[in-house]
Design a protein around this nucleic acid. Structure first.
Length: 345
RNA sequence: UGGGGAGUCGCCAAGUGGUAAGGCACCAGUUUUUGGUACUGGCAUUCGGGGGUUCGAAUCCCUCCUCCCCAG
């Protein structure tokens, strides 16, 4: 079978390619050039990643190519992200990247290019168009993948999902002699790299001073734009005094940020909220059943009840979760299977 | 300019003769393919200024400066 592997320049995708090659597939390595713009003071690492991806391909003796998705990525992911922030929400660009770029654009481009399947280095398992948690529960990345379609999953492979530990993956990388074996795991929004989200947003939004109010409605300081703050955030307020302050809310119209020193502040712990923009990989969930849900990558999954609501679903958690934030995703699981999910309103 | 109180890191704050706790903030690092959380480390040779007493002072004395409260 002809498989196009998305090589990011990291270990996981490198091992993915090596494994598929070993299994006898005709493997083509593809580097997706999604973002290559430098930001003031920071150089975009794409060239380095590209070189690493290419080195891996050369090492494995597979074909290598680059797809330039910059234009689409900017539209579908970056603009989405900026618009969401402007609307006062906190988006998850990586989920959008999977939905729109990796498992739509990359998939269709690869298929047109002669591929039978695509593969990525995600920690997740696919079986018959269904998505399951990775064996390595600690690294499970299904949270980022819940908006992928069943049809896309039928054409995708994620062999890394079958490993129990990251160490096994690294050991394999070592065994295959991959040049990326020792490369540090990436983190942060993929295209922003080492640059913080704030620095990134500052390129697109000008500062707008506003008030910071504590739980007693007392002004305790100034911020330079409510857009830069998100629920649950601690530092960055530049306010000292007694206990640490956590952001518990904000008002984009008034440009005010609300904080509290109370770790049990009700606004920080919700167990009742709605999601919209629903997406299901297969069948819709049965509202009479109890499922587990996850509101953040690597967060503990909690039991929840689902019910219909005006714009989507109402979620009632068994235990309240911290920092439920509009714009973030709620993923619904039936055991290890990902049913889908929606975006917190 | 009568009475009382207070001035210790950007903020809060211990320490009242024995050689500057702690928290917040900030910075760095760790964890993490979103925001964020959490964790580790760094962060006052110096205690409003100036004198003095003492082996030794942020701590005692003198003086000046500043702030707050009550009186005017």
């Amino acid at each position: 079978m002809k498989v196009f592997v998305g090589l990011s320049g990291g270990v996981d995708s490198s091992v993915t390619a090596a494994l598929l090659k070993e299994q006898g597939h005709e493997v083509v390595g593809v580097y997706m050039k999604n973002w290559a713009t430098d930001l003031p003071g920071f150089e975009c690492p794409w060239r380095e990643d590209y070189m690493d991806a290419k080195r891996v391909a050369v090492h494995l003796g597979i074909d290598f190519k680059m797809y330039d998705f910059q234009k689409e990525y900017k539209q579908k992911v970056v603009d989405y992200m900026i618009d969401e922030y402007k609307a006062g929400r906190t988006p998850n660009p990586d989920i959008m990247c999977n939905q729109e770029v990796k498992f739509k654009l990359f998939l269709s481009t690869a298929l047109e290019d002669g591929a039978d399947m695509i593969a990525t280095g995600h920690y997740a398992r696919i079986d018959d168009g269904k998505l399951f948690k990775a064996k390595n529960k600690d690294k499970d990345q299904t949270y980022f993948l819940y908006r992928v379609t069943k049809d896309a999953l039928r054409k995708s492979l994620m062999p890394i999902g079958d490993f129990n530990t990251k160490q096994e993956v690294r050991d394999l990388a070592e065994k295959f002699g991959l040049p990326t074996a020792k490369k540090k795991d990436s983190q942060g929004i993929c295209f922003v790299g080492k640059v913080g989200i704030r620095e990134f947003l500052e390129q697109y939004v000008s500062p707008k001073p506003g008030r910071i109010l504590d739980q007693n409605d007392k002004e305790i300081g100034q911020h330079d734009g409510a857009i830069f703050y998100t629920i649950g955030q601690r530092s960055g307020l530049g306010v000292g005094g007694g206990l640490p302050y956590y952001v518990v809310g904000k008002d984009m119209d008034k440009n005010e940020v609300y904080v509290s020193t109370d770790l049990d502040d009700k606004r920080l712990w919700l167990n009742d909220f709605e999601i919209s923009g629903l997406h299901w990989i297969g069948d819709e969930p049965d509202l009479s059943k109890e499922y587990t849900v996850c509101h953040r990558y690597r967060a503990q999954h909690t039991k929840a009840k689902l019910s219909k609501s005006k714009h989507g679903l109402k979620i009632t958690l068994k235990d309240p979760a911290r920092a439920i934030t509009a714009g973030q995703s709620m993923v619904i699981y039936d055991g290890d299977q990902v049913l889908g999910g929606g975006i917190i309103t």
